[in-house]
């Protein structure tokens, strides 16, 4: 088996995650889908690291994880405060921007 299949898997997972972001209304699930996309990217980085024979890809994946952690913390805090004020975690309810 050629390791390039890992990349196909990563692409597939990324696409699934992206579609999930578009379809789901629950903000928490949307967030999970974003995590899925980030993880797919990480997988691609790791595979690229193996491809090039150096560790830079893994470093980038590592940083992605850190940033994702920060993002999750803030994102979930936003969801919680949104839920407190609106009693709903639906992204469609936060549609006050429309005319």
């Amino acid at each position: 088996m050629n390791p390039v299949y890992y990349l196909y898997l990563a692409a597939l997972l990324f696409t699934i995650g992206a579609t999930g972001v578009l379809i789901r209304r629950n903000a928490i699930v949307v967030f999970m889908c974003i995590e899925l996309m980030l993880n797919a990217c990480n997988l691609a980085f790791v595979v690229f690291s193996r491809m090039h024979g150096n560790l830079d890809g893994q470093i980038i994946a590592f940083f992605t994880m850190v940033v994702a952690a920060a993002e999750v913390v803030v994102g979930l805090a936003i969801i919680v405060s949104l839920f407190r004020t609106r009693h709903s975690a639906s992204v469609d309810d936060a549609s006050l921007m429309k005319l």
């Binding site: 390791p3 595979v47 690291s49 193996r50 893994q58 590592f62 952690a69």
Partner: peptide, 22 residues
């Protein structure tokens, strides 16, 4: 894929901490 450290971090931090936060 040879990313031993990342694999463990993925389990401990991602699955263990971030998903629990979720």
């Amino acid at each position: 894929n040879g990313a031993y450290f990342l694999g463990i971090v993925q389990i401990v931090v991602y699955t263990g901490a971030i998903m629990m936060l979720f």
